[in-house]
Amino acid sequence: MTTRIDTRFAALKAEGRPALVTYVMAGDPDLATGQAILEALPQAGADIIELGMPFSDPMADGVAIQLAGQRSLAAGQTLRGVLGMVEDFRRKDETTPIVLMGYYNPVYSFGVEAFVKAAKAAGADGLIIVDLPPEEDEELCLPAMAAGLNFIRLTTPTTDDKRLPAVLKNSSGFVYYVSMTGVTGAVIKSRGAVGEAVDRIKSHTNLPVAVGFGIKTAEDAAEIGKHADGIVVGSVLVDAVARSLKDGKATDQTVGAVRDLVAEIFSGVKRARG
């Protein structure tokens, strides 16, 4: 089954540039502003959207995304609310792929079968669940695939050649290479090593490989985008939200701050292969 993700990567391949994948936390800093940010992303240059599902205990995230999740939960976000955001988005945008990203417990609590059905119906295209390695595929990966959702897996510098096939086995949509051992928002130590890792993964799979964690500027995007089929930015966008707030509340700068930053990073993506 072809998803919006497959279609989008195929189109960008023809265009000869990497995809810009943007992560925002659903409902940060409040539900209405979160929706406005989401809807502003494609115009600003986002090719694929990762929509964060907030969790009380984001073990793999750095401070920026931890705080974004807290703002979203404090604003009353729920998993059903996240799916509602996707549904509203789809009324205006039929083509931009949306990947829901988060942790397993809220999904497990919702009920796996009910969740994959509802996510598909809302117009989501894929899932990234940080704490579900291939060893736990029966939990959600297989039901998600059966429901027509891509299950996008993280591969990391600790995933060696012996392990890669197992990680790639039930992956679809794209492969997300985590550029470093660390949490979101940290700094990439060696761009060269990232390029090598991408080539290594590509020798194992035909899926597009997107690189995330530690990409902060147009410059980073242009560099990493030389090798990767996609680059993922998250913590800097979430930080832009945080910096635009006044007394913890959205201002008339908030949506614009994210839009401008996405546009700037997009300029790096465009010149990556130029």
Partner: peptide, 12 residues
């Protein structure tokens, strides 16, 4: 039980 960890930790 099980092994619900991020991929980075799985090999460890």
């Amino acid at each position: 039980g099980g092994r619900f960890v991020a991929e980075t930790l799985m090999p460890l």
